[in-house]
């Protein structure tokens, strides 16, 4: 609603909308036709899954103000739920997605319960309980991985209405469609009536309580929705990108990665998740290419990895110092500059 008082009849095609439509057309039509296999496998598939995870966390942290350090665990819940639903129930794809996200939402609510009493760092640390407990659970109980000897399971090929999502392009399109639909939903959510609830709880919990915003319900709903979205991100991560599922892939480092995506991209913005995920996916690739070029392959893989870690860590610190509102606000400034230049000519 954004309470656009006297909502002036906006033109259907603003510049921003045109840009988004062009981007979608490129993503849906251009990429499958022209992008190299490497671009899809190494960049776009992880980008889509991580963007969605970043989006889910942003809903919780950026909008509702509750910091979570356990996002990867909810990705794992989504992935294992989808695996077991496909394996044991054989439900069609949309229902698999629905139930996997519902499972993640339910687990999210359970681990969100401490937020009703805890704040700030106390809450952040308590979300680590989700990270360690769930990772342990999937490791320890063979049932989740169908008693696979190695603990690593290969994700079955998804299929629906006669289409199997086996080829690279079809997996890409499945991920893209999912991410697009969920992003539209979240866009409507955070610009609708829920916006007031979320931001009121984030900005001033006491005032929110006194004016009758249902603080506890808002927090739990934020945990549920955020976990559901991150759960779907986990499904995409393991079914369309890696095509394997293992608990190690959803460790604490992954949780931090998702947090960084949300922060570097810009909290409480939707495009921030995409910008942040783009950076996190592309940056290491650039670094390893760059170091290969500079050192002419003289750097061993281990050192490259350590260097990546250092540079990434430093980038985060630099961002926090210089651009606390993330890539999203840089984009804002750039478009404003471009517009004023275009307006002048």
């Amino acid at each position: 609603m954004s309470l656009a008082v006297e909502a002036p009849a906006r033109p259907l095609l603003t510049g921003q909308r045109l840009a988004i439509l062009a981007l979608l057309a490129l993503a849906f039509l251009g990429v499958p036709a022209f992008a190299s296999p490497w671009t899809i496998e190494a960049i776009l598939l992880p980008f889509l899954a991580l963007s969605l995870a970043g989006l889910g966390l942003n809903l919780l942290t950026g909008y509702a103000g509750q910091v979570s350090l356990g996002s990867a665990a909810f990705m794992a819940v989504g992935a294992y739920a989808a695996f077991n639903i496909q394996l044991r129930l054989g439900l069609p794809l949309p229902l698999t997605f629905l139930f996997a996200s519902t499972t993640a939402a339910a687990v999210g609510v359970i681990f969100g319960l401490p937020s009703l009493r805890l704040k700030g760092f106390y809450l952040a640390v308590s979300t680590l309980a989700a990270q360690f407990f769930l990772q342990w659970l999937f490791n320890k109980f063979g049932w989740f991985s169908n008693y696979s000897a190695s603990g690593v399971i290969s994700a079955p090929v998804l299929g629906f209405a006669g289409i199997t999502f086996d080829s690279r392009e079809s997996r890409y399109l499945l991920a893209l469609t999912t991410v697009t639909l969920i992003t539209i939903f979240v866009h409507r959510l955070v610009n609708g009536p829920a916006r007031i609830n979320l931001i009121a709880v984030r900005d001033n919990e006491t005032a929110a309580k006194v004016i009758g915003v249902p603080v506890l319900r808002t927090k739990l709903a934020a945990f549920a929705l955020s976990s559901a979205i991150i759960g779907i991100a986990g499904v995409l991560w393991s079914f369309t990108y890696l095509r394997t599922i293992e608990p190690e892939g959803f460790n604490l480092d992954r949780s931090f990665q998702i947090l960084f995506i949300a922060i570097i991209g810009g909290l409480a913005t939707l495009r921030g998740a995409f910008l942040g995920a783009g950076l996190i996916v592309v940056f290491p690739l650039l670094l390893s290419r760059g170091s290969a070029w500079i050192f002419d392959g003289g750097l061993d893989a281990g050192s490259v990895q350590l260097t990546q870690r250092i540079v990434l860590g430093a980038t985060i610190v630099t961002f926090l110092i210089l651009e606390p509102n993330g890539l999203s606000s840089i984009l804002d400034r750039v478009t404003a500059r471009v517009r004023s230049l275009m307006g002048r000519t």
């Binding site: 007031i196 931001i199 009121a200 900005d203 001033n204 006491t206 005032a207 929110a208 006194v210």
Partner: peptide
Amino acid sequence: ALFPGLSVAE
């Protein structure tokens, strides 16, 4: 005790 992230209307 306003909500700085919201508009006046909100």
